[in-house]
């Protein structure tokens, strides 16, 4: 019984399920935050799956998601700037808890892989992920004031 696979399954079912429910219902500001959190949760799950299947080459998926996930949220932050201007999303608590979860997953994986270039790669991905999601939530909560949505 693969512990990594169990952790990934629980992360996916709980995290992405909640993110999907968040993006499907509620006001626009909560949907945008849910979209941002969906990438913040999927990336650690992909890294856990890479460890669960004992395939280091799957880590590239986590790398691309850590890079392009926040870019997707920036797209929404910029092009929905007018709609989000009235009640900007304030979800710092949720963002930091999810970032903490991601950090915990990455550190657990680093301990498992042992000191090597693969561990540095995991740390780079973790750093990209957490900074990306912090910046994305910063952009959501009013990063594009002067933009006419253009």
């Amino acid at each position: 019984m693969n512990g990594w696979l169990l952790a990934a399954t629980v992360g996916l079912a709980g995290g992405l399920g909640a993110a999907l429910w968040g993006v499907a219902t509620g006001p626009l500001r909560r949907r945008v935050v849910a979209q941002n959190l969906s990438t913040a949760l999927a990336c650690p799950s992909l890294l856990l799956l890479s460890q669960a299947y004992n395939r280091p080459s799957y880590v590239d998926l986590g790398l691309v998601l850590a890079l392009l996930g926040p870019v997707g949220t920036l797209v929404f932050a910029r092009l929905l700037a007018d709609e989000l201007a009235e009640d900007p999303p304030r979800a710092w608590g949720l963002t930091w808890t999810v970032a903490g979860l991601g950090a915990a997953a990455v550190t657990a994986l680093c301990v498992a892989t042992g000191p090597s270039r693969a561990m540095v790669k995991l740390l780079v991905i973790g750093a990209l992920l957490i900074s990306g999601n912090a910046i994305a939530s910063r952009a959501l909560s009013g990063g594009f004031r002067g933009v006419r949505g253009g």
Binding site: G143, F144, R145, V147
Partner: peptide, 14 residues
């Protein structure tokens, strides 16, 4: 358009 400073720095870095 004036964009928040951290977002601009993040874009230039990433």
């Amino acid at each position: 358009a004036e964009v928040a400073r951290p977002v601009r720095r993040y874009a230039l870095l990433v």
